[in-house]
Design a protein around this nucleic acid. Sequence first.
DNA 1: TATTGTTATACTCTATAACTATA
DNA 2: TATAGTTATAGAGTATAACAATA
Lengths: 160, 160
Amino acid sequence: MALDERRTEAYFALMEAGGLLQMLMEDQLQRDGGLSYLQFFLLARLAQAPDGRMRMTDLADTVIHSRSGLTYQAAKLETAGLLRRESSPHDERSVTAAITDQGRELLNQVLPGHVAIVEQGMFEALDDQQTEALADALEAVRDRLRVLAPSSAQRRRNRS
Amino acid sequence: MALDERRTEAYFALMEAGGLLQMLMEDQLQRDGGLSYLQFFLLARLAQAPDGRMRMTDLADTVIHSRSGLTYQAAKLETAGLLRRESSPHDERSVTAAITDQGRELLNQVLPGHVAIVEQGMFEALDDQQTEALADALEAVRDRLRVLAPSSAQRRRNRS
DNA sequence: TATTGTTATACTCTATAACTATA
DNA sequence: TATAGTTATAGAGTATAACAATA
């Protein structure tokens, strides 16, 4: 088979697998914690950040959303008590989002079901060697895409 | 590193890569043809089906959307002249969606830019061996997920 | 002047349930 | 009774542009 064809297949397999996984997760997260996938991802991203906090703009970049979209979601999560927004001491323009204890609790509550789907859906079909190869390749692709994707600030500038 | 950790990394890399790729594609498709990613995917799926036609329900399953959502998108694509809906001769309940010549034209117009992003974003970072390994693993994962994901008919039944 | 975050607004999309028609 | 597709409706989420405040 031509390599071109193999690449096309890999591309469509990536997109379909990502979409299917997200659909399954959307159900699971709603059931186990009343979260959308985006909200889960935001909390998970904060939880793994140093001290559980990140600047709003940096958070917007990792999630690939407009700033206004992030403001909307952050407001919902703040109302639910899952994160707090604090003004930064160094730069008074910026706002820092911090995950709360309650946010971490909900994350822990939701995580076992999440991991179960990952195990059943992704890795039951792969042996250890394939898992390593998949992880290596996907990380390389992700890193490459991060470079290509414009930041939220760039996207804003491009409009004017 | 523990395998568990490696799996978690692979999972998040998959989701982030898929999201980034979709964002880049959304821009490209809008620019080159005024299509959303979903609309592109629907047309592409039809184009590769035998005779360029599929039953609505089957189409809904491949794109993982509710039937009403597909009706909405199909109506838009039909208005734009990119697909046609015809009643099936065998089963008069079902409707067959068929891509039009104009739809195929638009697909061809949009495809070069699409392929360019796939090449630059995904495969520039991988050698041939990695590409094969990635395709193998992703296809195995996708096939496994297809089994786990409920069909549109199942989802409808689950509600009642 | 540029950047950060918010807000107002308008729009797209999605899902649910109810409905029609056919099997 | 079950399935296929549509429709009405209502809600969630998104992006754009305009805004205020700080750098």
